[in-house]
Amino acid sequence: MAGGERRTVFVTVGTTCFDALVMAVDSPEVKKALLQKGYTDLLIQMGRGTYVPSKVSGDATLQVDHFTFSPSIADNMRTASLVISHAGSGSIFETLRLGKPLIVVVNEDLMDNHQSELAEELAERKHLFCARPQTLGETIRAMDLGTLVPYVPGDAKPVVTLINKFLGFPVD
């Protein structure tokens, strides 16, 4: 690995409040795991959460920074080497489209927890890694980015063709 190269981990909770995730990435265990994997920076978008992570890193050189909201989250994703995200579909597909390695952390405190369905299905298809706040450190230590399969974006045309047929439009 080149000496001066920065490798940023971008953590995003979207518009939600997901303190358990912010706390997890702020823990010594996760920071140590990230350092060992060669990451140099940790940038946390904490949304509506009330837990404020420490800006100074405990050990070695992992630089930690955080903010609540920003209109340029897409830019943060683009410059990141790894994205750790909540399980919202918007954030998942945005990261996959950019071809960034992704760990989705499922919020177990949500009442209607159908969100884990999507993350687990995509993890089974090897497009991303899926974790819970308490297993994040373990997931980072065990992950092998080489096993990830690039996600091929979907296409609305087959659906539109069926709709056209139903309505009696000629197929073009």
Binding site: G88, S89, G90, F93, G154, D155, A156, K157, V159, V160, I163, N164, L167, F169, D172
Partner: peptide, 27 residues
């Protein structure tokens, strides 16, 4: 055909806009 397109916010809206992009605008 007169269309009603219901946008459901967030991810729902993103998916719906992909459908709208793919439909023939003159139809």
């Amino acid at each position: 055909l007169r269309c009603l397109i219901v946008l459901g916010s967030g991810g729902h809206t993103a998916e719906m806009m992909n459908v709208v992009t793919a439909v023939q605008k003159d139809r």
